[in-house]
């Protein structure tokens, strides 16, 4: 029977030997990042590397390392990147924060009040991972003060999944404030129906 000729030949282990976080090939930096994650001073080293790193794959490994650390400090390193002009960096930051909802918690209220509507919109997704009671409170508060309909729509979408009866009043007030916006009205109706409201 063919397939393997025994004994099978030796193979090289996967991955490059780690060298430096900031020097060498992207392969070597990737390995260095992965070796750094989990070390006692890993978060600060990864933070410095992230500020300099230009390769999306290495950046992805840095974000994974920070998400795995899952501390308020590692979340704090990620938060500024949610404002990046680079869409891939912004998305990577959002994914990392979503992957560490507990660690992101201390930053959420500030993100939901950010002057940049894009940041507020993206932050609604992070709220999805929080305990339902807290998520309902945060999104209800956001709906009551939000002026940008796209942000309100993002909050409504999350509430359609995790909403509880205490969010119904904020949803109703939001519908009144944005009366005339058929898309938002539809979203609010769906969320309200799912929560079991009037």
């Amino acid at each position: 029977m063919p397939l393997i000729r025994k004994p099978s030949p030796p193979h090289e282990p996967a991955g490059a030997p780690p060298t430096s976080l900031t020097e060498g090939t992207s392969d070597q930096r990737w390995a260095a990042v992965r070796a750094t994650a989990g070390q006692p001073d890993g978060v600060s080293l990864l933070a410095a590397a992230l500020a300099r790193e230009g390769d999306p794959r290495v950046r992805e490994a840095i974000f994974t390392g920070l998400a795995r650390a899952a501390t308020p400090e590692s979340a704090a390193v990620v938060v500024p990147y949610i404002r990046s002009e680079d869409a891939s960096l912004r998305a990577a930051a959002l994914d990392a924060l979503r992957a560490m909802p507990e660690a992101s918690r201390p930053h959420i209220a500030r993100l939901l009040a950010d002057p940049d509507s894009d940041v507020r919109l993206l932050s609604c997704e992070i709220v999805r991972g929080l305990p339902e009671g807290e998520a309902n409170r945060l999104l209800s508060d956001l709906l009551d003060r939000e002026t940008e309909k796209n942000v309100a729509a993002a909050a409504v979408e999350v509430l359609a999944e995790i909403g509880r009866p205490e969010a119904l009043a904020a949803l109703a007030r939001c519908a009144e404030r944005f009366a005339g916006d058929s898309f938002l009205a539809f979203g609010i109706k769906v969320a309200t129906d799912r929560i079991g409201g009037p």
Binding site: A14, G15, R34, E60, A61, F63, T64, A67, R68, A70, D95, R98, A99, M100
Partner: peptide
């Protein structure tokens, strides 16, 4: 999510 990312990177490697 965090574990999936790590596993994906390990598989990628």
């Amino acid at each position: 999510d965090a574990s999936r990312r790590l596993a994906a990177e390990n598989l990628f490697e």
